[in-house]
């Protein structure tokens, strides 16, 4: 009896998502068909590329690492009721810090250099989260605009580093020199190449979930988000919660940058953040800010993203089509919420 109840409640939670996905695919399908493409072939490619070959699956995991961390960088402050739209800047500053450390200390042994590179990334990102956090704490300035605007500051920082002192003169695109090989993350699988960043990402997911659901500080964070005034009355320093959540989110965002550097690219490349920020926001919002739901949604979005590139290669349908599908899924998830509220 009890077990069937649990199954029922999970089904009830998942069903609206399924309907939202179907609705988004249907809406975008009309558009794809109007453009004169084969809708079923397109959707087959989008959904199954990740599972047809080992390479497709590894590509999906590689996409999953930055996306899940970017989504957490958004949902951690959201737990406290704050919006961090600055994951992109935190990624880039983290990646910059990781690259600088990886180049300057290139001769250290891996045991020291790998942790140093990752730590630099986390601290760089945390610093980028501290600025809006402090402005919020000290002056009460809304974090939404400050986090966004700092993204644009970081773009110029990356352009400076990639074309200035650490430039790789051989590269056509603004890029730095490679970090020392001792700073590269060890490989889990060599062919197709999968670096060990995925383990760290899963660890972060687990720690975030544990801290928020099983510790006092986590509970205080949730209480702050649920009702800051009530939380304040009960002695929680809510302003401190805001700043802490933004700094931690910045650290997580910075880690996503460090993993891109140490695991995937081994250097800082202008534009390496692709559309990770926006996808992270979409993931976080589809998950409705639930930190446990984030990895599952992030995996699904990674599947779509890998499928999108394959679709562009083989069917010549622009990747942006899938991006619009993802945004539509979000809209339909929001609509399904509304329907549920009306019904109950």
């Amino acid at each position: 009896m009890k077990k069937s109840n649990a199954v029922f409640s999970i089904a009830r939670a998942v069903l609206p998502y399924l309907l939202a996905v179907l609705a988004a695919f249907a809406a975008a399908g009309v558009f794809i068909a109007l453009m004169g493409f084969d809708v079923f072939k397109a959707y087959g490619t989008i959904l199954f590329t990740s599972f047809r070959t080992p390479n497709g699956f590894v590509q999906t995991l590689l996409k999953f690492v930055p996306l899940v961390l970017q989504a957490l960088a958004f949902t951690i402050p959201l737990t406290a009721g704050k919006f961090n739209i600055g994951g992109e800047g935190q990624l880039l500053v983290g990646a910059t810090a990781a690259t600088v450390v990886g180049i300057v200390f290139a001769n250290l042994p891996p045991v020291l250099l790998i942790p140093l590179v990752l730590l630099a990334g986390v601290l760089g990102g945390a610093l980028w989260g501290l600025i809006p956090g402090w402005l919020l704490y000290r002056f009460g300035i809304n974090e939404i605009l400050t986090t966004v605007l700092l993204n644009f500051v970081s773009f110029n920082l990356v352009n400076y580093v990639c074309t200035g002192p650490l430039r790789d003169p051989g590269a056509g695109h603004p890029t730095t020199l490679a970090i020392g090989e001792n700073g590269w993350l060890p490989m889990l699988v060599n062919n197709p190449p999968l670096h060990s960043g995925i383990l760290l990402a899963i660890l972060v997911v687990a720690v975030v979930y544990y801290v928020i659901t099983r510790t006092v500080s986590g509970y205080e964070l949730v209480a702050t988000g649920a009702n800051p005034r009530a939380a304040g009355v009960f002695g929680i320093n809510t302003r401190w919660m805001f700043i802490a959540s933004l700094v931690i989110a910045g650290g997580v965002g910075g880690l996503s940058g460090a993993l891109e550097v140490a695991g995937a690219q081994h250097r800082l490349i202008e534009g390496m953040q692709h559309n990770f920020l926006v996808l992270g926001l979409i993931i976080g919002l589809i998950a409705k800010g639930n930190n446990l739901a984030v990895p599952f949604v992030a995996f699904f979005i990674s599947v779509l993203e890998v499928g999108a590139s394959a679709m562009q290669r083989t069917l010549m349908i622009p990747v942006e089509m899938v991006f619009i599908v993802e945004a539509l899924i979000l809209v339909f998830v929001l609509l399904s919420d509304l329907v549920q509220k009306r019904v109950s």
Binding site: L281, I282, L285, I324, A327, L334
Partner: peptide, 10 residues
């Protein structure tokens, strides 16, 4: 935000 995302894509 959702409209912002759709705008970027379009």
């Amino acid at each position: 935000l959702a409209l912002f995302f759709i705008g970027i894509g379009l």
